[in-house]
């Protein structure tokens, strides 16, 4: 299994004089559900983007098994991006295209020039896309324009797109930050089922502590670009939380304010 372990060693990324990610070292075992928490600007998003090379590291090395991710180029880099799918806070779908085509974008890493330009996909790929949509309960919207869907539905389409990439790792950058509690729960449950049923490694940036506690096997906390906590939910005591989010006023830090849990029990079960 070690060939599927993600090793991040001494990775630093600077933007001008600001260090967004500061000498981060982490090993992520395959199949783990890892939550990354921390206040805004702590470097969570940059860390995720370093993993699929949407952001280039200033120094340090990322390896996936024996593959050196930080050295990949051109076709090999695109292949790596296919293997570690990403979903975004703003979904990043092509709003003018229908849902099915948006999901099929997950297959384009394997496509050449001609089929890309005419947006042609094989029947097998369509089948795969429909199955992914079906899993997320979005089949009925397959021919609708992505822009006409609600935020929660768009995020589920984005997850379907990620699934047809047949990835090993799923990166989720604040996937529920723009969703209401009901949709947030649905999206997090979808990520959990992908993690448990498909054995995908999931790395998710979260704003909400209780979501992290509820879903994540392992919680990593960042502050000013550094890892300040790495453990399980139980170890995340009040003192630790205060240290992560820092500063005054955290005595009254109230997790319920940012909670994604639904107040109504019958809805929570749905």
């Amino acid at each position: 299994m070690t060939h599927r372990t993600l090793h991040i060693s001494g990775v630093t990324r600077r933007f001008g004089s600001k260090t967004a990610v500061d000498n981060v070292t982490l090993d992520i075992a395959p199949g783990q559900f890892v939550g990354i928490i921390g206040s805004s600007g702590a470097g969570k998003s940059t860390l995720l983007r370093l993993l699929n090379r949407m952001v280039e590291p200033s120094s340090g090395e990322i390896r996936f098994g024996h593959r050196e991710v930080t050295k990949l180029k051109a076709r090999a880099l695109r292949e790596w991006r296919r293997e570690c799918a990403m979903i975004f806070q703003q979904f990043n779908l092509i709003e003018r295209l229908d849902v099915l085509t948006n999901v099929l974008v997950g297959r384009i890493a394997a496509h050449g020039f001609a089929s890309s330009m005419v947006m042609r996909f094989s029947d097998a790929e369509r089948q795969m896309a429909i199955e992914a949509l079906d899993r997320l309960g979005m089949t009925e919207h397959a021919l609708q324009r992505a822009g006409t869907l609600s935020g929660g539905q768009q995020q589920r389409v984005a997850i379907a797109r990620a699934l047809v990439q047949k990835p090993q790792i799923m990166l989720a950058d604040e996937p529920i930050a723009s969703l209401d509690p009901g949709n947030a729960t649905r999206v997090m449950d979808a990520l959990r089922s992908i993690n448990r049923e498909d054995g995908l490694t999931v790395l998710v940036n979260l704003h909400t502590l209780d979501t992290a506690r509820e879903y994540c096997d392992r919680i990593v906390a960042m502050r000013t670009g550094r890892i300040v906590f790495d453990g399980v939910a139980g170890q995340l005591t009040r003192e630790v939380v205060r240290d992560i989010y820092g500063g005054a006023g955290t005595d009254e830090f109230n997790e319920a304010i940012t909670s994604t849990r639904l107040p109504l029990p019958e809805l929570a079960l749905a």
Binding site: M54, A85, M86, L93, S116, M119
Partner: peptide, 16 residues
């Protein structure tokens, strides 16, 4: 960004 993260090339980014 979504297309790039799915492994799209520069041309595919433009097309999609």
């Amino acid at each position: 960004e979504g297309v790039r993260a799915a492994g799209g090339s520069r041309l595919q980014e433009i097309r999609y």
